[in-house]
Design a protein around this nucleic acid. Structure first.
Lengths: 214, 214
DNA sequence: TCGCTCTAGTTAGAGCCTATAACTAAGGTG
DNA sequence: CACCTTAGTTATAGGCTCTAACTAGAGCGA
């Protein structure tokens, strides 16, 4: 069922769109999103400028597609790791490996946003899925309540938690996981540790250890 | 001494440069750095495009000046707070207030960098000064060693620490301060908590509490 | 197989930007 | 008071995104 009977037109279209995105990722990795040039991509594909607009109606739409794919890729990586039995520390390593694999891809979704840009609903849905994977991993650990102020607050503001049975203490841990992982990774990827001499991997591991009460 | 005997030419020049930066900050706050337009600034000042190049030789040089000023502003804010007796928690609040006061200013220095852009030496010097202020605040708390793996590592890689008498345990705490504060703040400023419903301020405070062993 | 239609590509160009070159005019300086 | 330095000008090159108008060919139904 639903075996979308794509004619050759549709098939070709999808292929060219994929090729455009491929080139876009290559450019992104070296120049960053701000210097992403549709014209340059078109020329690399042997077509001239405006032809690309048949496939993406604007630069923003291409970037949105890239953002969507990046979210999807991270969500899949985490889901795969979790299904393979990864615990919280394993998920942290998964995120780090995913980030180092393509720093600009990480920064594209978690870095500085363009003011005024509003992410489409489906990307925020994937973002929720990512958080759910992390929450699940903590839920399996059975986090005890601590009576911290934020736990009471989160009990009243848990709209983002998919599973209503998850205790607030677990939600707090998931948030801390997210912010700490991002804190180390984003500074590392942005090069702020360069020249300081220490190994960011050790700092990352140390933060994760702390997060797990080790 | 050294009362630079600026003639009227120099004085006027400095004033115009300041006015350009002022307009640049206004633009930055609304459009972000990627959309910063020299031409638009020039027109706001009633001069036409190329005139601005008398004051900043390129867009990059203007942005570099803004980055320098932003680092300076944050370093001063922290120094002032520390001199007024602020402890680690107080410094954290100072950073947060500074960030919320102008989110784009925070993201300009701590957000996604342009690949290939290399910060001039004096800004990294200010960055070191910022870290020194944080390290000092922890040093006053007398952090006990924990025997964690990263402490041994930091003992061998402490080039960035200004004061050689500071123990590695303190350096580790300062790094954790930096990454955790940045982790929460950057996600908050980037709008990733929007729509989740909870109050980022409580999460921030909770992370700081945790950092202080509370 | 034929012919229609749809669409992927083209070039031309508007309008934005950064940046340089050549020139003008006015102010500071000796 | 004359000179010269410099802040500003316009013109222009060259980059970008994106629209408009057109062309040619590939897919589709009869």
């Amino acid at each position: 069922m639903g075996a979308d009977v794509t004619g050759p037109r549709e098939r070709y279209r999808a292929q060219v769109r994929a090729e455009i995105k491929q080139r876009a990722w290559e450019q992104l990795a070296t120049t960053g999103v701000s210097a992403l040039s549709l014209k340059a991509i078109a020329e690399q594909l042997g077509m001239s400028g405006p032809a690309l607009y048949r496939y993406f109606s604007s630069r923003d739409e291409l970037i949105t597609a890239l953002i969507r794919d990046a979210y999807r890729s991270l969500a899949d990586a985490l889901r795969t790791a979790a299904d393979a039995g990864a615990d919280v520390a394993g998920l942290a390593d998964t995120v780090r490996a995913w980030a180092l694999d393509d720093p600009q891809r990480y920064l594209l979704i978690w870095g500085t946003p363009v003011p005024g840009y509003h992410a489409p609903d489906d990307t925020t849905a994937i973002s929720t899925e990512i958080m759910a994977t992390i929450v699940d991993a903590y839920h399996r650990r059975d986090v005890p309540p601590t009576g911290r102020r934020i736990e009471a607050h989160l009990d009243g503001h848990r709209g983002w938690a998919v599973d209503p049975a998850v205790p607030a203490a677990t939600l707090r841990q998931a948030l801390a996981f997210w912010t700490r992982v991002h804190g180390v990774l984003s500074l590392e990827l942005a090069g702020h540790f360069a020249g300081m001499g220490f190994d960011p991997a050790l700092l990352f591991d140390d933060e994760i250890d702390d997060l797990l009460g080790r």
